[in-house]
Design a protein around this nucleic acid. Structure first.
Lengths: 246, 246
DNA sequence: AAGATACCTTGACTGAGATCAAGTGGAAAT
DNA sequence: ATTTCCACTTGATCTCAGTCAAGGTATCTT
C-alpha cells in the first residue's frame, strides 16, 4: 500500500525534493536520477541494512524514521544516528555497511543502485556538493550528541531528545512563541534509551519525573505536549537562547 | 622557530601532502592553493579558534594535535574531535565556529583564507571530493566514539583511547604482530577525561589499574608500551579481530 | 635552595543510574 | 471473554564512577 503511493511518482512531486541529496539538481539531472531510482518500503522493526553486509544501494528516507545502530558482542547497543525524511543512507565508494540500519517506524526509501549513482555523482557537482553539505550537517549533529552522551545527566538527556523532536515538528507551529508544542514520540522507551546511552527504566523514570513537575504533559505513552519550550530547554542544559528561540 | 620551518615551503615537500584536503590535487591546482595559503603556529594550550567567533580561514593541521571542544555554561566540557596532522579545520560556507579549537600540543596549521578557498573549491572537484571523503571518515569516527561515550565502562573507554592512539602510531611498527607498540600520550589526564566523558581521577585510576595488571607499561606519566595489542583491544570491548589485527 | 605551579595519584565517601524484580494497561489473538 | 503479548511503570537494592580531599613529583621561577 505504502509502496504504491510512491511507485512511478515523479521527482517534482516528491515530499523531500528540496531537502534531500537531489535538492540542487536541475530538471535534466533529475531525469538521470529518475532512471536509476526505485522505492522500497519497510515495516516498523525491520532491518533495512545489516552491519557488515554488502551495500548495493544508497538512498534517501522519504517517510518514516530509521536509525543507525551499533552493537557490541555482549549485546550493548548504541544508536549513532536518527534518520528523518530527506536524510541520506549509505556512502558512495564504500563496499560494506558499518552499522545496522533499522526501520523505527514504517519507512519508505528512495533507492539508487550504488554503481550508477557513483558514476552520476562524478559528473554532477550539484549532487556531490549537496551530499557534502548534508554530511557536514550530520557531523555537527553527531558532535552535539557526543556532548549529550558524555556530559549530560539522565534528566538532561531526556530533555535534549524531546527538544530535538519538538524542534523538528515545530516548523509547522504558529509564530507565537508561547504556543504549546504537541507531537507523538516516534521512539519506544528502549529506542530512546539506546539513543541516550541509558536503560529503558531510567528513561521511563525521567519521563515520569518531567511529567510530574509539569515540564511536559503526557496523554497515553507517546503523545507529548510541551507547554513551555523555554523551560524544557533549560532542563536540557542548553543555552536557553541558543538557536531555536531568539 | 617552528613557523620558519614551514614558511615558503613548497606543497610538494609537505608532510601531509597525500592525506590532506589537497591530496588529489594536480600540479596546477596545487599552485592555486599555494597562492592563498599561509602557515600559522600555535603553542600547546593556546586557543586556535573560539566558539562563536567569525571564521575567516579554514585549513589543515600540519603537525601537532588539536582538539574540538564543546563547553556548557556550568563548565562541563566534552571533546568532540581530535585533530591529527592532515585533518581539516573549518567548514566552507559557514560564518562562525561552532566549537572551540584548542592546540593540545604545539601545532602548525596550513591556512587558507575562507573566501578564496570556497571559490577555488567550486571549480576544483578534486578538492570538493577529497573534503567529502574526509568528512565521511570523520563522521564514522564520531559515530564510533558515540558507542564509546554511551555504552562503554571507564576501563573500556581508556583502553579504547589507547587503542586509537596506538593504532595511529602503529603504521611505523614492523610487520611482526607481537612486537610491542610504544608511544607517548599526547594528552593530559584531564584532556583524556574530556574526550572520554570521565573525570580525571577516574582516568588516573583506570590507567593505574591497567598498568598493575600488565595490560600496559608506563614509564613516567606519558610513555606507554603495549606488550600485547590483542589484550588491549579485548579490554576495549572491541571485536578483537576487527579492523586492526587480521 | 626554596617556593610556586602544573600534572598526576590515591583514599574515603557519596550518589546517579544500573540491575533485578514485580506489576500495570491496552491492544491483538483466540 | 480471556488470554497473551508488548510497551511501559515502579520499587528495592547495588555498583561504578563522581566528588572531595590530601599528598606526590617534576619543572619552572626567583
Amino acid at each position: 500500500m505504502l509502496k504504491a503511493q510512491f511507485d512511478h511518482s515523479n521527482c517534482s512531486d516528491c515530499p523531500i525534493r528540496h531537502r534531500a541529496v537531489c535538492a540542487h539538481c536541475d530538471a535534466h539531472e533529475l531525469e538521470e536520477l529518475e532512471d536509476i531510482k526505485y522505492y522500497r518500503s519497510f515495516e516498523a522493526g525491520q532491518t533495512i541494512i545489516w552491519s557488515g553486509d554488502q551495500m548495493n544501494f544508497v538512498g534517501s528516507v522519504v517517510s518514516g524514521i530509521a536509525s543507525l545502530t551499533q552493537t557490541m558482542e555482549d549485546g550493548r547497543t548504541q544508536m549513532v544516528g536518527l534518520l528523518l525524511p530527506s536524510d541520506f543512507v549509505g556512502r558512495p565508494g564504500r563496499e560494506s555497511a558499518p552499522y545496522d540500519v533499522l526501520a523505527t517506524t514504517d519507512v519508505v526509501m528512495c533507492c539508487f543502485r550504488k554503481k550508477p549513482f557513483e558514476e552520476l555523482m562524478n559528473h554532477t557537482p550539484h549532487i556531490a556538493h549537496r551530499l557534502l553539505q548534508m554530511t557536514l550537517d550530520e557531523l555537527d549533529a553527531a558532535r552535539e550528541w557526543m556532548l549529550v552522551l558524555g556530559r549530560k545527566t539522565a534528566r538532561e538527556k531526556i530533555a535534549s531528545l524531546l527538544s530535538i523532536i519538538a524542534r523538528r515538528d515545530a516548523s509547522i507551529a504558529p509564530k507565537g512563541k508561547s504556543a504549546p508544542i504537541v507531537f507523538d514520540l516516534p521512539l519506544t522507551r528502549e529506542a530512546m534509551a539506546d539513543y541516550l546511552g541509558l536503560t529503558l527504566e531510567t528513561v521511563s523514570r525521567q519521563i515520569s519525573a518531567l511529567k510530574k513537575e509539569g515540564v511536559i504533559e503526557l496523554e497515553g505513552k507517546r503523545h507529548v505536549t510541551i507547554p513551555d519550550m523555554r523551560r524544557l530547554m533549560d532542563e536540557a542544559g542548553d543555552d536557553s537562547d541558543g538557536g531555536f528561540l531568539n
